[in-house]
Design a binder for these strands. Structure first.
Lengths: 139, 139
DNA sequence: AAACTACTTTACGTTTACGTAAACTTTATC
DNA sequence: GATAAAGTTTACGTAAACGTAAAGTAGTTT
């Protein structure tokens, strides 16, 4: 059931719009562990998923080492002793708190953008009015 | 109507939990423009708001220069000629797209965390069962 | 076989966002 | 008026996340 497709470095590079340099760097930092055929890297679907997670993490403000921590922890968790599992649940809760904060930030930002946009439109409307007036006057 | 309170650097530092070093750095980069009494910085409510925006921006993955761009643009917009206003509206739209992306990312992350948590709890339940069994057997 | 293409390693360079230390001034307190 | 507390400038240091150049390899096309 686990997809068996593999990917070259440039395929992934294009699909996700990151440089090959970055991908190699992620491997260097232990976030990806592609197989090898000789020298060349062979990426599995799992690697692909992880890359996707890395990039999303970045967009969400997580550092590479934070993401790595999560990966490592998840791998350990799979070999599940109780302590690991509990620690994982704790980390998950921390992340949820982080997400709540972000949602809050987004909501605030949206409100501010609404009022900013409203002010812009008001100002534009004002400009229109004065334009029409000066046209009427200069007739 | 505009609040007239002022703030010292350490007040802001404590309120928002940033170092004074960071605040001075933000000024250096042109994001804050506190008044001076002699040498010492005097921050207005406007500065305070901007600091808040800077920090929120950071949490949302904006760089300082991106935030500065927005500040500068907003200042120009206030002196409103039509071009500036339109450009501002455009930038606001870009930001909205960015926010949509982030909301998407958050939603995905939440789903994945849900399934991750579920798996943890299942694993824990399994461990409990085997514990009880071994207790019953060793009776 | 020559050339092209995709991939590799090694390694130094760069930008952002501060940390940290040193040496100085100003203001408040005893 | 000494001394501590808070503020200042100047300047070098640092970690993260790559960019970029150099030089080599492996397979493929012409």
């Amino acid at each position: 059931m686990a997809e068996k497709r593999t990917f070259s470095i440039s395929e992934l590079s294009q699909e996700f719009d990151v440089t090959t340099r970055s991908i190699r760097f992620y491997e260097d930092q232990g976030l990806l562990k592609p197989a090898r055929r000789g020298q060349t890297r062979i990426f599995s679907s799992k690697d692909r998923v992880r890359l996707k997670l890395i990039l999303r993490g970045k967009r969400m403000g997580f550092s590479l080492s934070e993401t790595k921590e999560l990966f490592d922890l998840w791998d350990e968790t799979l070999s599940g002793n109780e302590k690991q599992l509990l620690k994982m649940l704790e980390i998950l809760n921390n992340r949820r708190a982080h997400l709540e904060q972000q949602k809050n930030d987004i909501a605030m930002a949206e409100m501010e953008m609404d009022t900013a946009e409203a002010r812009c439109r008001e100002a534009l409307a004002e400009l229109q009015k004065t334009k029409e007036q000066s046209l009427a006057t200069n007739k």
